[in-house]
Amino acid sequence: MNNPHTTFIVASYAITAVAVLGTIAAIMLDYRRLRRALEKLGAPVDQRADEG
């Protein structure tokens, strides 16, 4: 891709990748934190809500 606008194309894909991967990481870290907190209270994630 020998083109004067390569920087714009690469920047677009790089920013998109950072935004998407950042969102995925944030959601997964939040899930891990919630899971640990629930386990500490003795209510594992797989337990039914009406049991917890």
Partner: peptide
């Protein structure tokens, strides 16, 4: 995919709040 993961987190957050 991300929406389902976020909904799961939100349900767990509410369960955690209630238990707390």
């Amino acid at each position: 995919t991300l929406h389902m993961m976020s909904i799961r987190n939100e349900i767990l957050r509410r369960r955690l709040d209630r238990l707390t």
